[in-house]
């Protein structure tokens, strides 16, 4: 009998008090990134960022050592030629466990996140890696549900890949090595969220000046291979936000880190576990036991069951 993961279960086990044994205080990379977002944010940007940055610094968010519990749920790590980011050794990667939080109360369904994703990854217009679905609540109101890769802790898509072209890296993101993928689409079949895409036609050209293609930044896409949301991990690792978070004018998308127990959308920063608990965050298709790491906060009479 396995214990079914509860939405907030793992956060109860993550120490909220910063672990000061781990060297000197080290700023959260995303918090650092806040400072670079000033120009983008308008009106309250200065205050917001200042407050957020102050909050982050005030909390003294160092990188916490991984709790034993989280280690037990250790992520699948394939020793993969391309898995190492430019400056990231495996041990460094494990210092963050990225999650996403969507505040559905704020999402107005504008689709800018999808557009930004298409622009960043040079995708076809109809196949962004984050889709926004229009849904209707039980009360008959419309609301919107943005769905990127759900960053499963136990991803069904990696298990079925015949050549290990798709795998989960230590900071909790599932990648596709498009220089290996044979294009069987078994991963599209296995994904319970339907978030994987496939390059059926010759992909869009991308400037050669970009860093890609790597599994972390698969740009340009490769013909006849699978693609998926990689949470813009190439950005996260250098303290930048994913394209969709940057693009969201409603501040509805947060990036969180289980290790430091923080979350931020660039204007606000919260204690992740506390925020999720207080706002009754839920995950999509939790009953499948894949351990998704994307959280949703409802608030307009949305159904909590998906």
């Amino acid at each position: 009998m396995t214990e079914a993961p509860q939405p907030n279960d793992r956060f109860d086990r993550v120490p909220v008090v910063p672990d000061t044994h781990e060297g000197g205080p080290e700023h959260l990379t995303v918090a650092e990134a806040l400072a670079r977002q000033v120009s983008r944010r308008n009106v309250v940007a200065g205050i917001g960022v200042a407050a957020a940055a102050a909050g982050a610094v005030g909390l003294g968010l160092p990188v916490l050592s991984r709790p034993a519990q989280a280690k037990a749920e250790a992520v699948e790590w394939h020793d993969h030629a391309h898995a190492d980011g430019p400056a990231a050794a495996a041990s460094d990667l494990a210092k963050h466990q990225w999650v996403m939080v969507f505040d559905l109360r704020r999402c107005d369904g504008c689709g800018k996140c999808s557009d930004a994703c298409i622009d960043m990854h040079f995708l076809q217009k109809e196949t962004p890696w984050i889709r926004v679905y229009e849904r209707e609540s039980s009360g008959g109101q419309k609301y919107f549900l943005p769905v990127p890769c759900q960053a499963c802790e136990d991803p069904p898509c990696t298990k079925v890949c015949p050549v290990t072209a798709t795998y989960r890296v230590q900071d909790g993101v599932t990648l596709v090595d498009q220089s290996v993928c044979i294009g069987c689409r078994m991963c599209l079949a296995a994904c319970p969220y339907g978030v994987r895409t496939f390059s059926w036609n010759e992909p869009r050209k991308a400037p050669t000046s970009l860093a890609g293609p790597t599994p972390e930044f698969p740009v340009p896409q490769k013909l006849g291979t699978a693609g998926k949301c990689v949470m813009c991990v190439h950005n996260l690792r250098v303290g930048k936000f994913p394209g969709c978070v940057d693009a969201c004018g409603m501040d509805a998308i947060y990036i969180g880190d289980l290790e430091t127990d923080t979350m931020t959308n660039g204007t606000e920063t919260f204690r992740l576990s506390q925020y999720l608990k207080e706002n009754d965050a839920f995950r999509l298709r939790e009953e499948l036991n894949t351990g998704p790491r994307v959280y949703y906060v409802a608030g307009h009479g949305q159904n909590l069951e998906f």
Partner: peptide, 26 residues
């Protein structure tokens, strides 16, 4: 025929992933 990248077929020999039904099929 159904593969997106038939040119990489040999990877089924060189780097098979035992948990994949495609490898079982093969």
């Amino acid at each position: 025929i159904h593969l997106g990248r038939p040119d990489r077929l040999l990877e089924l020999f060189t780097r098979p992933h035992a948990t994949s039904p495609i490898v079982w099929d093969f």
